[in-house]
Design a protein around this nucleic acid. Structure first.
Lengths: 182, 182
DNA sequence: CGAAGAATTCTACGTATGTTGACTTTCTTC
DNA sequence: GAAGAAAGTCAACATACGTAGAATTCTTCG
């Protein structure tokens, strides 16, 4: 008894990650999963519901900010970048991340999902760390740096960043991010 | 004699900026321009050609990196962020930028356009400034920070970053970017 | 074996898209 | 003012999509 449902979810996640919500057709997912398109509807009810089931939330990401917020300033920046890059290297997490980012720019609903996740994660981390007035803006700029790295590294595949090893990126990005924490 | 061609291009740029390439239909552009959809084809030949005509390249951006590369380290970072935000505030440039970014994630061709532009702009700037080994990677990380700001500020509209004034963003982001230049 | 029920596929509908070619209107030029 | 080109519209095409419901195969258990 092959777990067809699971096969569909994996195929959907991969398609959504590489092509975004709009450009991914149910038929293409079904074809990848070796299954008829109508089956996806029977299981999940609609394309939107399948997207939610397949992408949901990037699993280890919500904890990342909270964990890092507990660290002393010096180690926080390095740990943030390093763990972020590790997450982006696991196929599952990278696919959910990319699916979310890719879809956020064309679907307002996906954008809302990502926005809500980011604000909650950021607000949580800020609450832990003692916050001055501009702490939320600082956290947003850190998030912007990370999102930008993901965009250039995985979506655009800009050569210097796409080919660099994690250590090189950490060595350069951590000090810059540290400035936001001071 | 109203410049219909120009009206079409402006409408197209705005639609592509707010909805991306795939989610923008010729009929919606035509409707905005008060014109029949077939006319767009008659003028531009195809949707793709219209996209190229409407988006082309973000006008003042190519010079931005080159100009900034000439400045001393201390002023370079601040000037970069400030001028970047100014560009993103002019409707025309913001629309071309957003159209490019939004479309790059769903169309491989648009991604290539943006990738080529970024590498050329970055390589040009690096050539001016005396370069060590990792200079290209540093420049990419700066670009990542800027792209990330655009994503969170204009696409995702994350509250802290979307509502902050240019001065606040410059004050916080410039020092961080300065680290990449040292 | 045979029937109940789930898993899966088939067929089809309605809608939207990019694009085409024929058509009509408007403008320019001699 | 006629002729010819340009600007613009109309109706239609082929195609792809999400989805619904009937039909079919497969599994399971008495």
């Amino acid at each position: 008894m092959p777990d067809t449902r699971g096969v569909i979810v994996v195929a959907a996640r991969r398609r959504f990650a590489t092509h975004g919500y709009d450009a991914t057709s149910l038929r293409s997912i079904a074809s990848d999963a070796g299954v008829d398109a109508a089956l996806l509807i029977h299981y999940f009810g609609s394309k939107e519901a399948l997207f939610i089931s397949a992408v949901g939330l990037p699993t280890p990401l919500p904890d990342l900010f909270a964990d890092v917020a507990r660290l002393p300033r010096r180690r926080a920046a390095e740990a943030l970048v390093r763990r972020y890059l590790e997450i982006a290297d696991s196929e599952h997490s990278r696919n959910t991340m990319l699916a979310l980012v890719r879809s956020a720019v064309s679907s307002e609903q996906a954008a809302g999902l990502l926005r809500r996740f980011l604000t909650e994660a950021l607000l949580g981390a800020i609450a832990q760390r003692g916050g001055e007035e501009d702490q939320a803006l600082r956290a947003s700029l850190i998030a912007a740096q990370l999102v930008g790295i993901a965009m250039l590294r995985h979506v655009l595949r800009l050569p210097p960043l796409a080919e660099a090893g994690p250590d090189e990126v950490v060595a350069l990005a951590a000090p810059a991010i540290e400035r936001y924490l001071s």
